[in-house]
Simulated scan of single mutants.
Amino acid sequence: MRIAVLDDYQGVALDAADWSVLDADIEVFRQHLGDADAVVAALAGFDVVVAMRERTPFPRGVLSRLPGLRLLVTTGMRNASIDLAAATELGIVVCGTRSGAAPTVELAWALIMGLVRDVASDDAVVRAGGWQTTVPGDLEGSTLGVVGLGRLGQRVATIGRAFGMDVIAWSPHLTEERAAAAGATAVTKAELFERADVVTIHMVLGEATRGLIGADDLRRMRRTAVLVNTSRAPIIDQSALLQAVAERWIAGLGLDVYETEPLPADHWIRHPDAAGGTRVLRSPHMGYVTRASYRTFYGDAVEDVAAFAAGTPVRQLTG
């Protein structure tokens, strides 16, 4: 059996689990493979592919050109970049792994606190030999707006209440009862963007949520407010986001997700001049990346491969 482990950016996959239990030839790809043709060329002859989240897409056009592929393992139990229907038709078994909410919630709060307390600016000032130059904001007494009050959003809301924040929430089907159970107040979408000092997004990307947050929403935000996205980039209209930052509709922007990943070198979000005075914190899609998460991901991946080889697949995502 030949196994390809993809997008191991930090070079930790083989140390994060005991791969020796598998009777297999394992090749680790640390660099992103690139476009569809590059993926097909690199993976020809592999029986099993272990994909890290959505770093490498597997649409029908790729899967159909990998006739030797028998098992595709994705970390996590949801991967929008894998065509599960095509995999089923082609006889490719797709399995997932366990994952936790805590790492993404923690990063969301790291970005929120970094923006509100302006940590990056203070760090730059001290390194340059200066001292106090800014007056940061407050969490206590401010309003946290949670877009999407699911598993992650509820945990974010709990932490917001611990900081003494007033928590409001919106999603298309959120009821007052569910919001109250999470310690939040259900409001309209417009009201959330108008009232919140901090807006944080915790929605799943799908056809219904693509471009869910547009220019009208961003224009409603206070000029002193900050926006954080640790979910998926296309949930926010990217043209509107660029305009909001360039024209300083908001005070701060924290991003962990981007339309193209890895982020191209010439992307506007990399360049401070594009921010127009808006504070921007950039994280390279690290919401799920922790030592414990990787141990779970790769440990479960080994179990998935072993179970498949034994004829009893586990955590199967295809029929």
Rank of each mutant, 00 (worst) to 15 (best):
N229I: 07
H202M: 08
E194N: 11
V147A: 03
I250H: 08
P234K: 14
L144R: 04
G252I: 11
I236P: 06
T158W: 11
R232C: 01
G148I: 03
E176H: 15
P136W: 15
E207S: 12
D237F: 07
G183T: 13
V199F: 02
G183Y: 13
R195S: 09
D237S: 01
G214D: 15
A180T: 12
E191S: 12
L227G: 05
V245R: 00
E194S: 14
I235E: 00
D237I: 06
D216K: 12
G137T: 14
R220H: 02
A169Y: 04
D166E: 01
A190Q: 15
A190F: 03
I168E: 12
L212A: 15
V245D: 00
F193T: 01
I235C: 09
I235A: 07
I168W: 00
V198F: 04
T209W: 08
L144S: 07
T200S: 14
G164I: 08
A181W: 14
I201K: 01
L205M: 13
R219E: 05
T209L: 01
T158N: 11
L218E: 03
I250P: 05
M221F: 05
V228P: 07
F163P: 07
G206N: 15
D166M: 00
G206S: 15
R178N: 15
T200W: 11
R155C: 08
L242I: 10
E177L: 12
I235K: 08
Q238K: 04
L192F: 04
V199A: 06
T230C: 12
M165H: 04
A190G: 13
Q154S: 14
A225H: 03
